[in-house]
């Protein structure tokens, strides 16, 4: 059975080509859907890409949420259609109330652009099999600090809606619902991503001009600024990096899986999301 991905383009989106490239690379069919359109006819799965829709004015995703296409996106979600919001797309999904909570400014006020280790949680998310592995994906955002009230967090945890958490690669995988917010996996503080440090040492060995800040001091600086040993580089509540709705068809995450699909940019961990949903669509 053939299926098509729809990639919604808002004014200011800037990752839609990356998403289409990744899907194309993986052999899937993808089309752009303009924000002024009113229909998602022909789309079997929808992706809201990253970027700065409407210049991030007012709040990230606040204006995009009222684009004409979003009415179709909400209907698509209600009908059980799979939707993934990446980065700015995640922010749009929260503003549209398709996902609970909100994303505020990173705790350290820094725009964060780096590869992060992620822990895959046992969740109902249709875009990811509940494996017990970790993933390495790039983040690239200024407002990735996930926030919600205590009741919402409890409901997210109780209903297995937390899909991804920032973590260390060797932290114990698996879902621990009775864990208190603020729990920090072992070895979390002072953790230095392997590949990043390798790259830094390569640069140093190669005698590259200019001094790159080492990831070790960067990590230490973040921990110092935050004043806690939390793992989330952006201060996200309970280290949350991605959540889904109760049904599992609507999924939002801050990291960018589309950027690590072809193996050129370090790894291929991003493939799993697109393959999982493709297998699901094939099985229908």
């Amino acid at each position: 059975m053939s299926f098509r991905f729809g990639v919604v383009v808002f004014p200011g989106s800037n990752c839609e080509q990356d998403v289409v490239y990744a899907l194309d690379y993986l052999g899937y069919t993808a089309d752009y859907v303009w924000h002024q359109d009113h229909s998602l006819a022909g789309c079997d799965a929808v992706i809201l890409p990253g970027g700065f829709s409407y210049g991030d004015y007012l709040r990230c995703g606040a204006i995009a949420r009222f684009s004409p296409i979003m009415e179709a996106v909400v209907r698509f979600a209600q009908d059980g259609g799979p939707i993934m919001g990446i980065c700015n797309g995640f922010q749009v999904l929260t503003e549209a109330h398709l996902l609970p909570g909100a994303l505020i400014r990173n705790k350290g006020l820094k725009f964060l652009c780096r590869e992060v280790p992620l822990r895959v949680e046992q969740s109902v998310c249709q875009w990811l099999k509940p494996t017990t592995q970790t993933l390495r994906l790039p983040i690239n955002h200024n407002e990735g600090n996930y926030r919600c009230d205590a009741a919402t967090l409890k409901s997210l945890v109780d209903n297995c809606q937390v899909v991804l958490r920032y973590g260390a690669p060797d932290c114990a995988p698996g879902y621990v619902p009775e864990r208190a917010p603020g729990y920090v996996p072992e070895r979390a503080s002072g953790y230095v991503p392997e590949r990043a440090s390798e790259r830094v040492s390569e640069r140093v060995a190669g005698g590259a001009p200019g001094s790159m800040p080492s990831s070790a001091s960067d990590a230490a600086g973040l921990a110092g600024a935050a004043g806690t040993a939390e793992v989330a580089p952006n201060g996200a509540l309970d280290n949350i990096a991605g959540i889904c709705n109760r049904e599992g068809n609507v999924f939002g995450l801050m990291p960018h899986p589309e950027r690590v699909c072809d193996g050129i940019s370090g790894n291929s961990d991003g493939i799993v999301f697109f393959e999982t949903i493709a297998q699901r669509l094939c099985a229908v």
Binding site: R59, A62, I63, T94, D149
Partner: peptide, 8 residues
């Protein structure tokens, strides 16, 4: 509806 996000 738009100008503030009551969640935050």
């Amino acid at each position: 509806k738009l100008l503030a996000n009551p969640i935050i």
